[in-house]
């Protein structure tokens, strides 16, 4: 037994393939080169922030409900009126929370690390919109849901935050981040694999390297 003991976190989502422990997370190392890919992004840090919808924090973020923006490597998502979800690199939740607290003084703001309580996945590929629209009624056309758009709706009957984030997909293709309660994660993952079957979808692990980046 090693002298030092470190906790190992596991995602709510099981992706087939060889496993290894990276940055304290036991993840699947499976990568896919399919045209449509669904990857488990749950190890990324997730911080939930609530504050006045039109207050100082909203101005500091420069993000309102239904939009998102990258700010110093952290994706700031306007997930509801007066509600934000911040997504950053693996293990950075406390750092992100500290930065948020530094942005405002005197306002009532709630900052909660929800990394281990939620599931996060990413659907990437030229057919991503077509696959997602099989289980989501919101119009995913570029006119209504352009790059950076965010909304919360029913995806396969699960309450899900959907963020159009082609930039984060890194492949120059349509890419969506999907965020839901941890207990619904595996179900949503399987529903999306099912919806993407006709487009040749393949699941893959988070693609972490030793720095936690994609």
């Amino acid at each position: 037994m090693p002298d030092t003991w470190a906790p190992v976190a596991r995602s709510a989502i099981t992706v087939p393939g060889p496993r290894s422990v990276v940055d304290g997370w036991e993840v699947s190392t499976r990568r896919s080169s399919a045209a449509l890919r669904l990857s488990d992004a749950s190890p990324l840090a997730k911080v939930s922030v609530r504050a006045d919808a039109d207050g100082a924090l909203a101005d500091a973020f420069g993000v309102r409900f239904r939009s998102s923006r990258r700010r110093d490597g952290v994706l700031v998502i306007g997930s509801g009126p007066g509600e934000w979800l911040l997504v950053g690199g693996v293990g950075t939740a406390h750092q992100i929370a500290g930065q948020v607290c530094g942005l405002v003084a005197g306002d009532f703001v709630s900052v909660v690390d929800v990394t281990h309580g939620r599931a996060l996945m990413r659907l990437t590929g030229s057919d991503a919109s077509r696959a997602l629209s099989k289980v989501c009624a919101v119009d995913l056309s570029d006119a209504v849901t352009p790059e950076g758009a965010a909304f919360r709706s029913s995806v396969a009957k699960v309450t899900t935050d959907v963020i159009r984030d082609d930039a984060g997909g890194g492949a120059g293709e349509p890419s969506y981040l999907l965020h839901c309660e941890r207990s619904s994660g595996q179900y949503l993952f399987k529903c999306l694999l099912d919806a993407g079957k006709e487009f040749g979808i393949e699941p893959e692990g988070p693609g972490l390297d030793s720095t936690g980046a994609r």
């Binding site: 629209s133 099989k134 289980v135 989501c136 009624a137 919101v138 119009d139 995913l140 209504v144 029913s154 396969a156 009957k157 529903c191 099912d194 919806a195």
Partner: peptide, 13 residues
């Protein structure tokens, strides 16, 4: 009718 919602029946699986 900003028609953000698509097909009425597409709400779920």
């Amino acid at each position: 009718g900003r028609a953000d919602a698509g097909s009425p029946d597409a709400g779920g699986q």
